[in-house]
Amino acid sequence: MTRMALTKDEVEHIAALARLRLSAAEQAQFREQLSAILEHMAVLRRLDTAAIAPTASVLPLHSVLRPDVVRPSLSPEELLAAAPAAEAQMFRVPPVLD
């Protein structure tokens, strides 16, 4: 078996960072597939980019401002309508603190 770019621990770490609960089978499959994809990415190291500026956006960046005036907006009821759980005009979630 060829050495894979990602270790099992790394896969678990990434899944935890991404808040994804994965089964053992998924972890094994993603380890293999992501390792193969990352090996393909290695081609980028061939290029010397020391003097190249990164592109975060293709647009010339500029601030877009609008007048600071109150405009109509959606009602709390409309915005809460899609929530799995809501109470007293708030999204309801499990306890965060004991």
Partner: peptide
């Protein structure tokens, strides 16, 4: 990875 990709995007 991400930083290098953004630079090659410029190229």
């Amino acid at each position: 990875y991400y930083g290098q990709a953004q630079k090659v995007r410029t190229l």
